[in-house]
Write a protein that binds this DNA or RNA. Structure first.
Length: 260
DNA sequence: ATGCCTTGCTTAGCAAGA
């Protein structure tokens, strides 16, 4: 059983790359962020033709998320965070089939936050509060849970290429990291860190300044698993290959492998 | 220090990303 997350930075541009990647990496579940498509423009037929069911929640120009699943469609799909009034399409939740029992998947495109002194940062903090409550509720109902997506948080200094240069900047602030820890404290585990990993593995690289070539990136895309799933985790890796594509997304997919 | 790219929206220059 494989699950993955990928911020595609426009599904209109990246659809062929997503279909190519799925053909080479036929994961059971894939959540996408930054589709940037209203639902009427979502390429449902193309994705279904590739053998995937898909639930999606989009808006014009910004944000937008999708949940792809092989085999059965995701069940009990919820869009955004119930009870949190938000005009941005950032979260999609559903239960995907798995031999060992269904897995509740929450796919999120966390707010960027722009800068620590900005209104967008305030929104990011409010959004993270709401998400934490939503994940806590869902964990009560669904012990087998995965929270994955573009968190826009680098949890530790080792998750960025230059923690001294970037100290205190967006993605690294103590407030953001406290929120990441708050999710962990619900009983979740950063699947990537369940394993010894080589240094300087990242999931995002700026388009500018030849950042990818110089490996000046950050690890801000994450897969968190619940206690009930932790012992089934076989691997978690970042697939850098699509970042080498022509016209790539600035993010790479992150893939979780669970024992059946 | 700033912008460096990329995208969408709209048609040329922003806003936003991270």
């Amino acid at each position: 059983m494989k699950l993955a997350t990928w911020n595609v930075n426009s599904l209109a541009v990246r659809l062929p790359q997503v279909l190519d990647w799925l053909a080479a990496n036929p994961v059971d579940c894939l959540v996408l962020q930054e589709t940037k498509l209203t639902d009427d423009k979502f390429p449902q037929a193309e994705i279904e033709a590739a053998g995937y069911n898909v639930a999606f929640h989009g808006q014009k120009t910004y944000n937008g998320v999708a949940l792809l699943s092989r085999g059965a469609p995701a069940q009990d799909v919820v869009k955004n965070i119930p009870g949190f009034d938000d005009d941005m399409a950032r979260v999609i939740t559903g239960t995907v089939a798995c031999a060992g029992g269904g897995i509740r998947v929450i796919g999120g495109y966390f707010p960027n936050g722009q800068a620590p002194d900005s209104d967008k940062f305030v929104y990011k903090m409010r959004w993270l509060d709401a998400l934490r409550a939503w994940v806590a509720d869902e964990l009560q109902r669904h012990p087998r849970l995965v929270l994955m997506g573009d968190f826009n948080i680098a949890p530790e200094d080792r998750d960025v290429h230059d923690p001294v240069l970037l100290a205190g900047t967006i993605h690294l602030t103590p407030e953001e990291r406290a929120h990441f820890q708050g999710l962990i404290d619900l009983g979740l585990f950063d699947a990537f860190r369940l394993f010894d990993q080589p240094a300087k593995l990242f999931s995002w690289w700026d388009y500018r300044m030849l950042a990818f070539r110089k490996n000046q990136g950050m690890r801000i895309d994450h897969i968190l698993v619940s206690q009930a799933l932790k012992r089934h985790v076989e691997a978690c890796h970042i697939d850098k290959l699509p970042r080498k594509n022509e016209r790539p997304s600035d993010h790479a997919p992150v893939v979780l492998t669970l024992a059946e």
